[in-house]
């Protein structure tokens, strides 16, 4: 015997200190924010409250992007191209969508963040990353 069902559950997540700052910068300045750890001399994207390397909590925000380099990608039929992109000025990659076909892509391909016209402080305020061409 099989029993099936479904209910809807509402969630409301707080972006927190670093997350809120990141989303406000997207919305108000069309700007990507990372966090710089002076101890590790490393900038992580997106902004966060503590360093994933040393655990340090002195993490001033820094502007990164909008230019970015492609790290890796996958083409999901019907859903688009998802990619790990490393914004210029950051030492790690973040996950987002590519605006354009996957043909001709290679690690290092140059990208640029495209911002939505109507922004609401959400990760989708970045519409995606457009493909500029092959990297050096």
């Amino acid at each position: 015997m099989i029993r099936e069902g479904s209910i809807n559950i509402p969630f409301l997540y707080a972006a927190g200190k670093a997350g809120s700052e990141f989303l406000v910068a997207l919305r108000d300045r069309q700007q990507l924010l990372g966090s710089h750890c002076p101890a590790c001399a490393r900038t992580v994207a997106p902004a966060r409250a503590f360093c994933p390397g040393c655990g340090g909590e002195e993490m001033p925000s820094v502007d990164i992007g909008p230019g970015a380099a492609l790290v890796s990608w996958t083409d999901v039929p019907g859903r688009g191209v998802f990619a790990l992109v490393r914004p210029d000025g950051a030492d790690n990659a973040m996950l987002h969508k590519l605006l354009g076909p996957a043909e001709g892509l290679r690690p290092g391909s140059r990208l640029r963040a495209v911002f939505a016209d109507e922004r609401q402080g959400h990760i989708t305020d970045i519409e995606g990353f457009e493909i500029l061409g092959e990297g050096s």
Binding site: Y13, A14, G16, K17, A49
Partner: peptide, 17 residues
Amino acid sequence: RRRDDVSQPELVREAAS
């Protein structure tokens, strides 16, 4: 009741730290 000043990782960090 609601700690919307911090994300879940930031909340955890407060106690851990």
